[in-house]
Design a protein around this nucleic acid. Structure first.
Lengths: 116, 116
DNA sequence: TTGACACATATCCATAATGGATATATCTAT
DNA sequence: ATAGATATATCCATTATGGATATGTGTCAA
Protein backbone atom coordinates (compact mmCIF):
# COMPACT_ATOMS: atom_id res chain seq x y z
CA UNK A 1 0.00 0.00 0.00
CA UNK A 2 2.51 2.56 1.03
CA UNK A 3 4.41 3.64 -1.97
CA UNK A 4 8.03 2.90 -2.27
CA UNK A 5 9.37 6.43 -2.28
CA UNK A 6 6.63 8.66 -3.52
CA UNK A 7 5.98 10.62 -0.36
CA UNK A 8 8.63 11.92 1.95
CA UNK A 9 8.72 9.77 5.01
CA UNK A 10 9.56 11.82 8.08
CA UNK A 11 12.52 10.50 10.03
CA UNK A 12 11.68 8.46 13.10
CA UNK A 13 11.27 10.32 16.38
CA UNK A 14 13.25 9.47 19.47
CA UNK A 15 11.13 7.81 22.17
CA UNK A 16 11.50 10.93 24.32
CA UNK A 17 10.17 13.25 21.63
CA UNK A 18 7.35 10.89 20.78
CA UNK A 19 6.19 10.73 24.39
CA UNK A 20 6.41 14.48 24.85
CA UNK A 21 4.28 15.10 21.78
CA UNK A 22 1.78 12.50 22.92
CA UNK A 23 1.53 14.27 26.28
CA UNK A 24 0.99 17.65 24.64
CA UNK A 25 -1.66 16.51 22.20
CA UNK A 26 -4.11 16.28 25.07
CA UNK A 27 -3.51 19.77 26.42
CA UNK A 28 -0.86 22.41 26.96
CA UNK A 29 1.48 21.40 29.74
CA UNK A 30 4.63 22.62 31.46
CA UNK A 31 7.86 20.62 31.81
CA UNK A 32 7.19 18.61 34.92
CA UNK A 33 3.54 18.26 33.97
CA UNK A 34 4.73 16.61 30.77
CA UNK A 35 6.95 14.22 32.70
CA UNK A 36 4.05 13.24 34.94
CA UNK A 37 1.70 12.76 32.00
CA UNK A 38 4.22 10.51 30.28
CA UNK A 39 4.68 8.37 33.34
CA UNK A 40 0.93 8.01 33.65
CA UNK A 41 0.23 7.29 29.97
CA UNK A 42 2.91 4.62 29.88
CA UNK A 43 1.74 3.07 33.14
CA UNK A 44 5.04 3.94 34.75
CA UNK A 45 7.27 2.24 32.20
CA UNK A 46 8.51 5.48 30.64
CA UNK A 47 10.16 8.19 32.70
CA UNK A 48 12.23 11.10 31.44
CA UNK A 49 15.15 12.48 33.39
CA UNK A 50 15.30 16.29 33.65
CA UNK A 51 18.19 16.35 31.22
CA UNK A 52 16.27 14.65 28.45
CA UNK A 53 13.11 16.59 29.26
CA UNK A 54 14.35 20.16 29.06
CA UNK A 55 16.89 19.47 26.36
CA UNK A 56 14.19 17.88 24.20
CA UNK A 57 11.79 20.76 24.76
CA UNK A 58 14.42 23.24 23.69
CA UNK A 59 15.25 21.30 20.53
CA UNK A 60 11.61 20.65 19.72
CA UNK A 61 10.93 24.36 20.00
CA UNK A 62 13.72 25.12 17.55
CA UNK A 63 12.39 22.48 15.18
CA UNK A 64 8.89 23.92 15.39
CA UNK A 65 7.24 20.82 16.84
CA UNK A 66 6.05 22.79 19.87
CA UNK A 67 5.74 26.43 20.88
CA UNK A 68 5.88 28.06 24.25
CA UNK A 69 2.61 29.70 25.21
CA UNK A 70 1.68 32.30 27.77
CA UNK A 71 1.67 30.94 31.33
CA UNK A 72 -1.64 30.18 32.93
CA UNK A 73 -1.65 32.64 35.82
CA UNK A 74 -0.89 30.37 38.74
CA UNK A 75 2.82 29.67 38.93
CA UNK A 76 5.05 32.03 36.91
CA UNK A 77 7.92 29.56 37.05
CA UNK A 78 6.07 27.18 34.74
CA UNK A 79 6.65 27.33 31.03
CA UNK A 80 3.79 25.89 29.06
CA UNK A 81 4.17 24.25 25.68
CA UNK A 82 1.69 23.59 22.90
CA UNK A 83 2.02 21.13 20.05
CA UNK A 84 2.07 22.66 16.56
CA UNK A 85 0.49 21.39 13.34
CA UNK A 86 3.83 20.00 12.13
CA UNK A 87 4.27 18.43 15.56
CA UNK A 88 0.91 16.72 15.21
CA UNK A 89 1.84 15.37 11.80
CA UNK A 90 5.09 13.96 13.10
CA UNK A 91 3.29 12.42 16.05
CA UNK A 92 0.71 10.83 13.78
CA UNK A 93 3.40 9.38 11.53
CA UNK A 94 5.19 7.89 14.51
CA UNK A 95 2.00 6.51 16.03
CA UNK A 96 1.29 4.83 12.71
CA UNK A 97 4.70 3.17 12.82
CA UNK A 98 4.00 1.89 16.29
CA UNK A 99 0.60 0.66 15.20
CA UNK A 100 2.12 -1.22 12.28
CA UNK A 101 4.59 -2.93 14.59
CA UNK A 102 1.86 -3.93 16.99
CA UNK A 103 -0.09 -5.44 14.12
CA UNK A 104 2.96 -7.38 13.01
CA UNK A 105 3.43 -8.63 16.56
CA UNK A 106 -0.21 -9.65 16.76
CA UNK A 107 0.01 -11.33 13.37
CA UNK A 108 2.88 -13.41 14.74
CA UNK A 109 0.92 -14.38 17.82
CA UNK A 110 3.06 -12.36 20.17
CA UNK A 111 -0.11 -10.69 21.42
CA UNK A 112 -3.58 -12.17 21.74
CA UNK A 113 -6.16 -11.30 19.12
CA UNK A 114 -8.03 -8.08 19.69
CA UNK A 115 -11.22 -8.29 21.65
CA UNK A 116 -14.25 -8.11 19.33
CA UNK B 1 4.02 7.66 43.87
CA UNK B 2 4.35 3.94 44.24
CA UNK B 3 3.80 1.41 41.55
CA UNK B 4 0.37 -0.08 41.43
CA UNK B 5 1.60 -3.58 40.89
CA UNK B 6 4.13 -5.31 43.04
CA UNK B 7 5.40 -7.65 40.34
CA UNK B 8 8.47 -6.36 38.62
CA UNK B 9 7.95 -4.88 35.25
CA UNK B 10 10.73 -5.84 32.88
CA UNK B 11 12.82 -2.87 31.81
CA UNK B 12 12.04 -1.41 28.42
CA UNK B 13 13.87 -2.84 25.43
CA UNK B 14 15.90 -0.71 23.08
CA UNK B 15 14.26 -0.29 19.67
CA UNK B 16 17.03 -2.39 18.13
CA UNK B 17 16.47 -5.33 20.48
CA UNK B 18 12.71 -5.10 20.08
CA UNK B 19 12.95 -5.26 16.29
CA UNK B 20 15.40 -8.15 16.36
CA UNK B 21 13.13 -10.18 18.62
CA UNK B 22 10.15 -9.37 16.43
CA UNK B 23 12.07 -10.61 13.40
CA UNK B 24 13.05 -13.84 15.12
CA UNK B 25 9.60 -14.68 16.43
CA UNK B 26 8.58 -15.58 12.90
CA UNK B 27 11.44 -17.95 12.21
CA UNK B 28 15.12 -18.54 12.88
CA UNK B 29 17.25 -16.09 10.93
CA UNK B 30 20.88 -15.13 10.48
CA UNK B 31 22.28 -11.64 11.01
CA UNK B 32 21.68 -10.04 7.63
CA UNK B 33 18.41 -11.92 7.29
CA UNK B 34 17.29 -10.23 10.50
CA UNK B 35 18.26 -6.82 9.15
CA UNK B 36 16.26 -7.44 5.99
CA UNK B 37 13.24 -8.69 7.92
CA UNK B 38 13.30 -5.59 10.11
CA UNK B 39 13.44 -3.28 7.16
CA UNK B 40 10.50 -5.08 5.60
CA UNK B 41 8.35 -5.28 8.74
CA UNK B 42 8.83 -1.57 9.43
CA UNK B 43 8.15 -0.65 5.83
CA UNK B 44 11.65 0.69 5.47
CA UNK B 45 11.52 3.08 8.41
CA UNK B 46 13.79 1.00 10.64
CA UNK B 47 17.24 -0.07 9.55
CA UNK B 48 20.05 -1.39 11.72
CA UNK B 49 23.68 -0.69 10.98
CA UNK B 50 26.06 -3.67 11.23
CA UNK B 51 27.46 -2.32 14.48
CA UNK B 52 24.12 -2.31 16.24
CA UNK B 53 23.11 -5.60 14.66
CA UNK B 54 26.02 -7.84 15.66
CA UNK B 55 26.62 -6.09 18.94
CA UNK B 56 22.99 -6.56 19.91
CA UNK B 57 23.00 -10.22 18.92
CA UNK B 58 26.03 -10.86 21.07
CA UNK B 59 24.51 -9.11 24.09
CA UNK B 60 21.12 -10.74 23.58
CA UNK B 61 22.81 -14.13 23.51
CA UNK B 62 24.53 -13.39 26.81
CA UNK B 63 21.24 -12.24 28.29
CA UNK B 64 19.50 -15.39 27.10
CA UNK B 65 16.98 -13.66 24.86
CA UNK B 66 18.21 -15.64 21.85
CA UNK B 67 20.37 -18.69 21.19
CA UNK B 68 22.52 -19.59 18.26
CA UNK B 69 21.29 -22.70 16.46
CA UNK B 70 22.90 -25.06 14.00
CA UNK B 71 23.27 -23.58 10.52
CA UNK B 72 20.85 -24.67 7.83
CA UNK B 73 23.16 -26.42 5.40
CA UNK B 74 23.44 -23.83 2.68
CA UNK B 75 25.93 -21.18 3.64
CA UNK B 76 28.29 -22.04 6.53
CA UNK B 77 29.13 -18.38 7.05
CA UNK B 78 25.66 -17.71 8.36
CA UNK B 79 24.95 -17.87 12.07
CA UNK B 80 21.30 -18.51 12.83
CA UNK B 81 19.54 -17.30 15.93
CA UNK B 82 16.37 -18.46 17.65
CA UNK B 83 14.28 -16.56 20.17
CA UNK B 84 14.03 -18.13 23.63
CA UNK B 85 11.07 -18.33 25.99
CA UNK B 86 12.39 -15.41 28.07
CA UNK B 87 12.97 -13.53 24.82
CA UNK B 88 9.35 -14.08 23.86
CA UNK B 89 8.15 -12.82 27.20
CA UNK B 90 10.21 -9.67 26.90
CA UNK B 91 8.95 -9.15 23.37
CA UNK B 92 5.36 -9.56 24.47
CA UNK B 93 5.81 -7.08 27.31
CA UNK B 94 7.28 -4.54 24.94
CA UNK B 95 4.60 -5.08 22.30
CA UNK B 96 2.01 -4.47 25.01
CA UNK B 97 3.66 -1.16 25.84
CA UNK B 98 3.54 -0.17 22.21
CA UNK B 99 -0.08 -1.21 21.99
CA UNK B 100 -0.97 0.87 25.01
CA UNK B 101 0.67 3.92 23.49
CA UNK B 102 -1.16 3.44 20.21
CA UNK B 103 -4.44 3.23 22.11
CA UNK B 104 -3.62 6.42 23.96
CA UNK B 105 -2.81 8.11 20.66
CA UNK B 106 -6.07 6.89 19.16
CA UNK B 107 -7.97 8.01 22.23
CA UNK B 108 -6.56 11.49 21.68
CA UNK B 109 -7.57 11.50 18.04
CA UNK B 110 -4.03 11.33 16.76
CA UNK B 111 -5.05 8.30 14.71
CA UNK B 112 -8.41 7.58 13.12
CA UNK B 113 -10.73 5.12 14.82
CA UNK B 114 -10.16 1.50 13.97
CA UNK B 115 -12.15 0.07 11.13
CA UNK B 116 -15.39 -1.50 12.40
C1' DT C 1 40.96 -22.05 -12.38
C1' DT C 2 40.83 -17.68 -11.30
C1' DG C 3 39.49 -13.10 -10.77
C1' DA C 4 35.75 -10.08 -9.50
C1' DC C 5 32.16 -9.14 -6.72
C1' DA C 6 28.59 -10.12 -3.41
C1' DC C 7 27.65 -11.90 1.12
C1' DA C 8 28.48 -12.39 6.01
C1' DT C 9 30.32 -11.60 10.41
C1' DA C 10 32.93 -8.70 13.37
C1' DT C 11 35.22 -4.65 15.36
C1' DC C 12 36.43 0.22 15.80
C1' DC C 13 35.41 4.94 16.20
C1' DA C 14 32.43 8.93 16.16
C1' DT C 15 27.94 10.67 17.13
C1' DA C 16 23.42 10.75 19.20
C1' DA C 17 20.31 9.98 23.06
C1' DT C 18 19.55 9.41 27.74
C1' DG C 19 19.91 9.59 32.99
C1' DG C 20 21.25 11.55 37.08
C1' DA C 21 23.66 14.89 39.89
C1' DT C 22 23.91 19.53 40.64
C1' DA C 23 22.72 24.54 40.53
C1' DT C 24 19.53 28.30 41.00
C1' DA C 25 15.34 30.38 41.94
C1' DT C 26 10.51 30.61 43.49
C1' DC C 27 6.43 28.99 45.63
C1' DT C 28 3.82 27.18 49.78
C1' DA C 29 3.02 26.22 54.34
C1' DT C 30 4.07 26.44 59.05
C1' DA D 1 11.53 33.36 58.54
C1' DT D 2 12.58 28.72 57.65
C1' DA D 3 11.97 24.34 55.50
C1' DG D 4 10.64 21.68 51.93
C1' DA D 5 8.48 21.11 47.54
C1' DT D 6 8.29 22.73 42.82
C1' DA D 7 10.41 24.16 38.53
C1' DT D 8 13.70 25.13 35.03
C1' DA D 9 18.30 24.54 33.43
C1' DT D 10 23.01 22.74 32.71
C1' DC D 11 26.83 19.51 33.21
C1' DC D 12 28.86 15.09 33.00
C1' DA D 13 28.89 10.10 32.50
C1' DT D 14 26.82 6.29 30.33
C1' DT D 15 24.27 3.94 26.88
C1' DA D 16 22.67 3.21 22.10
C1' DT D 17 23.36 3.72 17.46
C1' DG D 18 25.50 4.38 12.68
C1' DG D 19 28.99 3.94 9.44
C1' DA D 20 33.62 2.86 7.95
C1' DT D 21 36.67 -0.69 7.87
C1' DA D 22 38.64 -5.45 8.16
C1' DT D 23 38.57 -10.27 7.10
C1' DG D 24 37.09 -14.35 5.16
C1' DT D 25 34.04 -17.14 2.13
C1' DG D 26 30.62 -18.10 -1.48
C1' DT D 27 29.22 -17.60 -6.41
C1' DC D 28 29.65 -16.93 -11.12
C1' DA D 29 31.41 -16.22 -15.47
C1' DA D 30 35.35 -16.02 -18.67
Amino acid sequence: MSSRKSHKTSPALTPAVFHILLALVEEDRHGLGIADAIEHASDGSMRLGPGTLYRSLKEMTHEGLVVEVAPRGEDPRRKFYRITAPGRKRLEAEALRYDRLVRVARGRNVLPERAP
